[in-house]
Amino acid sequence: MLSGASGRVEGVETTTLRPPQHRVSRTARWYWAARAAFGWLVLIAVQVIWLVADGDDVGLRLAALVATVIVAVTHVTVMPLWRYNVHRWETTPEAVYTQSGWFKQEWRIAPVSRIQTVDSARGPFEQLFRLANVTVTTASAAGPVRISGLDRETAQRLVDELTANAQATAGDAT
């Protein structure tokens, strides 16, 4: 747990938006790449079947296939590194900070006093990479705060810490 950036404005404690300090697991890069590659492989397989099955306009379909492969390789190579450099998280006794995205980036702060539930989930693909996601639900209209790509142990410690902090913090969680 790291101390947060906070200050006082006319006797009221404030929390400021700032970059969180912790990165997600390095394994998340491989998870994001594999998940993206799976989607691209499905599209490439469809294009290959179409190329082989229909003899008309082979040149145009081959060009489309080559373009798809170039875009896929670029996406699978660049996106995980970019996301890893952006995705960050941090908790303090007062708040949960997250930063996520790659084209559309989002920074969120969830005050601990507003936490309603803390959940951890692992889908089949995340289990393969030994990763977990933590979801912090608050009364915010913006929806829950999600921290994706954590190793299992870090996710469990985070859930335990946030649950204890939320129980120890006075607030109405609404």
Rank of each mutant, 00 (worst) to 15 (best):
R8Y: 11
G11M: 07
T14S: 08
T14Q: 07
L17E: 04
R18C: 13
P20V: 08
R23H: 15
V24E: 14
S25C: 09
R26N: 15
W30S: 04
W30C: 03
Y31A: 15
Y31C: 09
A34E: 06
A34Y: 08
A36W: 05
A37E: 01
A37N: 04
G39H: 08
W40P: 00
L41W: 07
L41G: 06
V42H: 10
L43K: 10
I44T: 01
V48G: 03
I49M: 07
I49H: 13
I49K: 14
W50D: 05
W50M: 06
V52A: 11
A53E: 13
A53L: 12
D54N: 01
L62G: 11
L62R: 09
A63G: 03
L65P: 04
V66A: 15
V66S: 15
V66T: 15
T68Y: 05
T68S: 06
V69W: 06
V71C: 11
A72D: 01
V73T: 08
H75M: 04
V76G: 03
V76Y: 04
M79I: 02
P80E: 06
L81K: 15
W82Q: 10
Y84T: 02
Y84P: 09
N85P: 12
N85K: 14
N85W: 13
V86N: 08
V86F: 03
H87A: 09
E90T: 05
T91I: 12
T91Y: 13
P93I: 05
A95V: 02
T98N: 10
S100E: 02
F103H: 11
F103K: 04
E106G: 04
W107L: 12
R108A: 11
R108S: 13
I109M: 01
A110G: 05
R114E: 00
